[in-house]
Nucleic acid binder design. Structure first.
Lengths: 368, 368
DNA sequence: CAGTTTATCCAAAGCGCTTTGATGATGTTA
DNA sequence: TAACATCATCAAAGCGCTTTGGATAAACTG
């Protein structure tokens, strides 16, 4: 009896699979599709790709059949024929020393992805160790895998830029590489200005001992932030204290560690500028651990990339912050790259996004 | 004089570019390479792909020339000829309602990427809105774009699983989909057991009012965690309080919000279990804000995915945590998928990773 | 009605690679 | 020396698509 039932089950399952087989699995190619329609491959291809030289009625018939038979062109073959792969490469460097994955990355990519999917592009992701970058870029650029590249995490005088320029493949850098003598397209936040403004804001509140807990300064953005920080002091003719400037990985833990160090000195800072919301969380923890109050005893400003899982309430955020959505940056970078891909002769373009200075509850007048 | 110098500069630059042109830009295909060697395409292809029927001396010559002339096979063409794309698709769902990018994602992908690059595979990333999943998967599966797929963020009874099964394409799910009647390969953390253990640990410490600040429970992992949580109570014949269980997005902000709510009631929890380190940070903030001490007045356990930018010190971590590296999970998932791709007939495999319970400073005996 | 467009459709070439089935060249055996 | 493996190489077919350069029929012109 139970045997019978299990036999039924098997039959049922097979039935189901057969059904699925017809409706979903069966993969047709252009040739089969066109034969089934009694048309040539040419006509079918044109009908599907919106060319004008095919009768509207025919186009309808073709499109219906394509949907019904589950036709989807093979991207490889199409790429071969058109010379375009309809894919964009994102290459993110993974440094062996501190093997941290940039938290920025997820949101940036989500933004870019949105642009791509609207245009029918795919995203090809490659992580690459510091050393073997060249080969990876070559591989990608080898006309065929991708039509364009987005460069993540540029460092000072980054070797990838001349390389990509010489490979003649469209690319957009997210961020900038300081002293590169070559021109290239980039999308960046105005790190210098936003940190200058943030610092000025603190100076205006009467703070003089302001600390900078920066990201690692072999990254370009970190340098610029420091430059902005320093230029604010210079503008006010105030001397910054070098012992209040450090650069560490932007983790909660290091933010905490550096803050503790600084607050335990004889002459602690009254304000701290942190290069990320994450390290800012560590800064706050350290302050509170010591029994001080954020925004009262110590003011804190962070840079907020608006990572989606670190949302701040709209009305009165916890942190006063220089704010700029990295997700939007991803979208914009992708848009720019698409433009370059469509029109490879056009000149490199530079997009400088301004960060807002959003005042939250973590800043107040300097204690006296 | 300065004019002369600038002319020299221009000449020099052009020279440099010309050199680059030869060494980097010039893209050769198999035909050109083989002609320059006086060999047939067949032989060259075989030499490069390690086939035995070519003389070792010839192979050397070919390999040298390939390197020198900067030859790299066109992946599209190769894919056409071999029927394999040497690419793996990662599809991550983006829900329109709460458009949060899963922070897990960056690290998971970094782990997987490591596996791929060792095997010569690329990673094709697609973000897809909840609705149009089917078409995206079909597109990808359309033999050609990718050889296999990794499914992220499975929900309860996820429709993607029967779909992919019927498409007959190898895939691995990161996580599980509860009541799916189909078999499929997955890699998951033993969420149930780890949350059961964590809860038992708290019960052992004398806690009775234990809160669970879970992730959104349309995600499978969140359900399992709750099940583990409840089973620990059941095992000890203790009644859990439903008002102490909530499920929210796993952000710092929501962790804080929920904790504040709970601590302000008449009968607050003495311990809190948080589904992520990020929401755990919010939990801690709330506790300290109220003037209580973590690990003393309120114990906290979090689940720690070991995200690289949320590292905890090795010796005595801040948080007692159920710990399991999502990066390693990425690597393992990719390994499994590679195996399935190489051998499509093999049965679905299930890998259940155990999380360690690491004791840190955030837990202590229940206050009395 | 011949001549010329115009509207539809098609055959075949070609994108760059792998792979099958042959072809010489070389060495081995009877 | 004929017969036969063995080794190293090659020509050509084919993967699935786009696109060029017709071809055919219908419509329009004068």
């Amino acid at each position: 009896m139970s045997e019978l039932r299990s036999i039924f089950r098997i039959i049922f399952r097979e039935l189901k699979e057969t059904t699925n087989f017809d409706s979903a699995l069966k993969k047709v190619n252009l040739k089969q599709l066109s034969e089934s329609l009694g048309l040539s491959q040419t006509t079918v291809s044109r009908a599907l790709n919106g060319y004008p030289e095919v009768k509207e009625a025919t186009r309808q018939k073709v499109q219906d059949a394509a949907r019904r038979m589950n036709y989807a062109p093979n991207p490889g073959a199409r790429g071969l024929a058109t010379g375009r792969s309809m894919a964009i490469g994102h290459v993110i460097p993974v440094s062996k020393q501190h093997e941290m994955v940039n938290p920025i990355f997820g949101d940036f990519v989500a933004g870019a992805s949105q642009t791509y999917s609207g245009r029918g592009y795919d995203m090809v992701l490659t992580h690459v160790d510091d050393g073997d970058e060249e080969s990876v870029y070559r591989m990608l650029a080898s006309k065929g895998r991708v039509d364009g590249i987005i460069v993540h995490g540029p460092r000072n005088d980054d070797a990838r830029i001349p390389l990509l320029n010489s490979l003649r493949i469209p690319f957009v850098v997210h961020g900038r590489s300081s002293q590169s003598d070559q021109d290239y397209s980039w999308v960046d936040v105005n790190n210098q200005r936003s940190f200058r403004r943030a610092t000025e804001f603190l100076l205006d509140l009467g703070h003089r001992r302001i600390a900078l807990i920066n990201g690692l300064e072999d990254m370009d953005f970190a340098r610029r932030r420091r430059a902005g920080f320093l230029s604010a002091f210079e503008g006010r003719a105030v001397q910054p204290d070098p012992s209040l400037m450090c650069s560490a990985e932007m983790t909660e833990y290091y933010g905490h560690q550096e803050t503790v160090k600084m607050l335990q000195t004889d002459n602690p800072p009254t304000a701290i500028l942190a290069s990320s919301l994450i390290s800012g969380l560590g800064v706050r923890r350290a302050i509170e651990e010591i029994g001080m109050t954020v925004g009262q005893d110590v003011s804190v400003i962070v840079h907020d990339d608006m990572l989606s899982y670190l949302t701040e309430p709209k009305e009165v955020p916890l942190f006063t912050a220089t704010r700029s959505s990295v997700r939007v940056a991803g979208q914009i970078s992708a848009d720019l790259l698409m433009k370059l891909v469509d029109n490879p002769t056009c000149e490199p373009e530079h997009i400088l996004l301004e960060a807002e200075l959003v005042v939250g509850r973590s800043t107040g007048p300097a204690p006296r």
